[in-house]
Design a protein around this nucleic acid. Structure first.
Lengths: 235, 235, 235, 235
DNA sequence: CATGAATGAGATTTCATTCAT
DNA sequence: AATGAATGAAATCTCATTCAT
């Protein structure tokens, strides 16, 4: 189903005219893929939007998949660069987290295609899909590890942590940027940062994490009322 | 692009034979949609796998979209029920979080289609896609609100928090269940629970969250070295 | 370039209605391939001539190549059967040769597509192309070997001889059946049979074939006039 | 389908540089047409192999057909010249036949494209296809007629005979040069020459060719066993 | 209920040829 | 002379859906 995933092109154009045409195609593809999804987007849609002839597409890309992969790779790069720039100079990792999240939300607001395009990648070219998150995670792991070594943040497995943080950003962005138009992003950011900073636990002693990390040993300890409530509250 | 999204059926079959055929189609559809994605999956694939004739499909479902929506809705229901059952009787919200996560990972391991099917929903029937997360979030919000009122967890916006927690689960599951074969899930769970419980912050005074919640006022405060490192570590 | 060459079909039709449609497609394909050649013949040409919809083609054949291969195989079979029948009961191999040739010419006259179709096979599916001649040769070799053992004909390598005789038939058919409308076939047959029967040699002693089977040793022996004539007569 | 078939050229190039480019195109075309066949060969294939730009093609040839026709005509000329040269000085027609065949086989071995190119001509430009054989036949007829007049060979219709001999060469070349790698060509030549020289007939009296030239009058004369054998041996 | 043949709109892809440079 | 970008017509193939049995 999935091809090798080279971010290929038939031949890179030599003349400036050709380079411009190639860019027009990439720009149009990003929009079209975002609007219709990979499968429903047709090459004709892309060339129509680009203002070039159908056949011209194949001068620059061997097939639909190739341009899609290039769009995804490029989006990822732009996003990572933007975040990197917007956290430049921040001294504490928690500041980096907050500003990084904010930059991500802003990018998502300006590129509502982002989510739709990236999620499609899973079915179009799995390697490209993973690459997108892998690269993100790699940068994250580096930063988090440094922060742990600097004693800024709690020690834990950095890769798992990276995926937690990416998940938080992704889902908040989906809910409050993509779905909701005017989200009051600062409030959402505050909530996220509260979790990220302090966690949820309110129990007095910080020596916790023993009894509760295991299942309650006897069902006798479980309040029937609570159980029923929980059950009802999920299903 | 998207149709009204009723979790439709032509008519629910009366005879047991009919019900069985309908179930066979749903089972096959779940697998096929998971393997090939919505667009690349054909009705013929589904009927072939079900061992029924092509025409029979239209006895039970008016079109391809309908069976897909039903598969998604059903998957969501089963998952929510499973999680609800597996946290039954737990007394503290943090235990619920851990056991809920674990149940989710187990479900994902047994239904690797889950992710692929749900993510496709975004393009097939957006309402169905949102419904999936909405319902999940609704249960979450209820549980979290109760826990906040009970003083078990920190107070914050429950819906944002719910999406944070769903994002954590989703991304960890993707990374350590779907992508990675033998994940040492307990270790991953520990990392997630450490974040969820305590957050990242290691700074001594709990009066934090002031200076760092705003951008550092003067670039003078920023160490150039740190800045450069951070930049490099993201891009 | 060439696919494995299974004389495949998507699925053999079950109902009589389906079988009839499949036959209609094969008949039309034979004509269309003969008229336009494989490459210039389009599936649409075939279905148009068959009176079925374009998509129907793909119910019975997975692609253009498959129906072509089936047409070629079938033509070969019909031709071989016809020739076999028309030499039934002949007692001497030379009679078999003459009547076989005649049957071939008749078939070619009624199926002017034959040549064009078979020759295209070389580029469409080489295996199918060779199979056509191989099967022909195999039957020939069997018959010729028997005749040699019976002392009816001169002993020589039967496979090479088979290809000689096929070549004679093929080229005469091309020249006098396909190209020329009314050839006086009997006269052509007589010429062919004279060659086949007696060969060309008119030199008195059968002890010949020595000096002349090698190149004339010295150019002195060569008449300059003859050489020049020959040269001129070929180029 | 077929255009007028002039062995055209836009304008023959004047500068040596232009002539060289034209030759490069012709050489590449011969190979490409041989490998892929006329239809599947693209102008781009030819220019790529030639190392010239796509547009350059149309400086030298008005279209694809023209270069193809030129390739075929040229191949024919080279082959006829080669054969003519290799039989120069031979005094007896049967020696000419043998050496001509040998020369043909050698040419075919060095130009495995020959067959594939010529056979395609039938569909590209029928006139060119016939011309190829016509010219060959014309030379043959002249030579054979002379040999008949000189009493070297048996009298018969020279054109039919020419096509017989061409068919023999063509089919042996196909079988033992193109298909088979190491054929033991001398043995094949011997078989061919035995047929050409003496024919097949072994019956004592040379007054034959009467009874057997007609179908056996009564089926009573036919051995049932023989008939069955023959039938089985063809189909 | 079940079947499977038939449909035709629509998508991707190729490529000979033209044209501006 | 040479280049290579651009074109668009035409071909193959897929598949959701309908329908007669």
């Amino acid at each position: 189903m999935n091809r090798p995933s080279t971010s290929s092109a038939r031949t890179l154009p030599v003349t400036p005219r050709g380079q411009k045409t190639r860019q027009k195609l990439l720009r149009a593809a990003e929009v079209i893929f975002g609007e219709k999804g990979y499968e429903r987007a047709s090459i004709a849609d892309i060339t129509r939007k680009s203002g070039v002839a159908l056949g011209t597409f194949y001068v620059y890309f061997p097939d639909k998949q190739s341009i899609f992969v290039e769009v995804v790779d490029e989006l990822g790069e732009r996003l990572r660069r933007l975040i990197a720039e917007s956290v430049t100079g921040l001294t504490h990792r928690l500041d980096v987290e907050r500003e990084g999240l904010r930059a991500f939300f802003e990018f998502a607001r300006e590129h509502p295609n982002l989510y739709r395009v990236v999620r499609q990648a899973e079915f179009v070219d799995e390697a490209c899909y993973r690459r997108y998150y892998d690269r993100f995670a790699k940068g994250y792991v580096r930063g988090l590890t440094q922060a742990m070594e600097a004693g800024e943040i709690r020690r834990m497995d950095p890769e798992s942590l990276a995926y937690c943080l990416m998940g938080i950003g992704d889902f908040l962005g989906m809910r409050w940027v993509i779905w909701e138009e005017d989200p009051g992003l600062e409030r959402v950011l505050d909530t996220a940062m509260t979790l990220i900073r302090h966690g949820l636990d309110l129990r007095p002693a910080p020596r916790a994490g023993k009894a509760s990390s295991k299942r309650a040993p006897s069902s006798a300890k479980r309040g029937a009322r609570t159980a029923r409530n929980t059950l009802r509250s999920m299903a």
